[in-house]
Design a protein around this nucleic acid. Sequence first.
RNA 1: CGGGACGUGGCGCAGUCUGGUAGCGCACUCGGCUGGGGGCCGAGUGGUCGCCGGUUCAAAUCCGGCCGUCCCGACCA
Length: 476
Amino acid sequence: MVEAVEKLTKKSEDPSRWYLQLVRMAKLADYGPVRGMFAIRPYGFAIWERIQRDLDDRFKATGHQNAYFPLLIPESYLKKEAEHVEGFDPELAWVTIGGREKLEERLAIRPTSESIICDFYSNWVQSYRDLPLLINQWCNVLRWEKVTRPFLRSSEFLWQEGHTVHATAEEAREETLQMLGVYRDCFHETLAIPVLTGMKSPAERFAGAVETYTCEGLMGDGRALQAATSHDLGQNFAKAFDITFLDEQQDRVYAYQTSWGFSTRVIGGLILVHGDDRGLKIPPKLAPVEAVIVPIWRGKNKAEVRSEAEKLHMELKASGLRVEADFDEEHSPGWKFNEHELRGVPVRVEIGPKDIEKNQAVLVRRDTGEKEFVPRDGLPERLRTLLSDIQENMMRQATEFRDANTRHAASYDEFQEIIAQKRGFVVAPWDGTPETEQKIKENTKATIRLLPFDRQEGADLVSGKSGKTAIFARAY
RNA sequence: CGGGACGUGGCGCAGUCUGGUAGCGCACUCGGCUGGGGGCCGAGUGGUCGCCGGUUCAAAUCCGGCCGUCCCGACCA
């Protein structure tokens, strides 16, 4: 036993170190020469591609089309919506030289694309017949961050941003909520991450929005992660960028807009929610590889085991499963077991001489470590039900954790104690003033993560004034 | 951007205090034996010691500046 093998730090021992090690050991991402800019490696990108496909299907199903808009935004465009520039100003990166010429007007690398897209929309939208305009783009954006971590906060990140235009305020609000629901479904059904949905407080609202809605997840260390947001932009951008149309009464009126985004940050969330001391754990519906076959051979029967494993591989692939076979001859089975667990592959399929003799295979699930012997005949079916069990179990465990770490605070003392010692979500009434919100933030570092749709009346813990339910947590 | 720690082959580290021309484990390459929870033996490849400058006969080591990383705070998907 050589102990010098690079071991993953225990999650409970040093969560931050665990996270960084996992990202690199599982080959999800790697550091580059510029701060905050990471390479997403093939395995990490495969996860992103699965998320993309899942979301994209949902966008298409709700009537959206994909398009692409420019990377560079003239300063003057960005400045048109006052709140918006102010919000993003500290994180902008600028292009000031083109070729060898100094530019007359500097160009911002998009931190988000509202301003450039609205400029196009002001031309594209002329009549109520042009509405609704339902467009999404998949792209990279850049925000000059001071403290960065792979996936969770990088200067450059990948995301999608939907930008829609509507004739009425009601329609825009419906769209905003519809897309919030699309995100929630993706989290619940595919990522197995339970999220709370609700409204942001004015202080946490997107710069330039009338209302921001959010999906908030709870990470394994008790901190919240804003996982996706959907904004009702009202007419703020329409007025700033002159997006008007002739309605059915022949009146020229300003349009209503929405925007909504979901980023590679969620991969960080996935790691933090499901990862354990053995490494990553990917829910089957998301996993690039649902099952990996590890052949167990001895010198004399290597050829036989190999051909059986290949046959099994073909069978499982033919049944529509995403299966990989690990025929590497350099590593021992034990080494492979650890490696695939680190990568979070939901199921391992072992096949060796004993199994061939008994016409069976061994299935080992990543979420519980349970092992079972399954006859070869029914293997694809059994694997399929096992994968769906795992999906369900991962969602159930994450939900139980979330619920066990959602606490009601009856007094401010209790509130502070929970945040300091247990973290998690804290449910408490808020009087709606920025003053109490700010005070809580200064005292406890907890912020209002969201205002749920269903809010109860109660006395604010700080001011004693009447308020309504808010959900607090320390956030990433 | 403040406080602290750290930058030495791909990864993890020793060497720095007390200057003398770079080492260990893993990984990687080749050969052989192995293989049901990170196997073993043998032979190899790979480093201008983060960057720039200074002190010195001589710098990974001492001094200055810069860059980067990590942890803790202030701002953010």
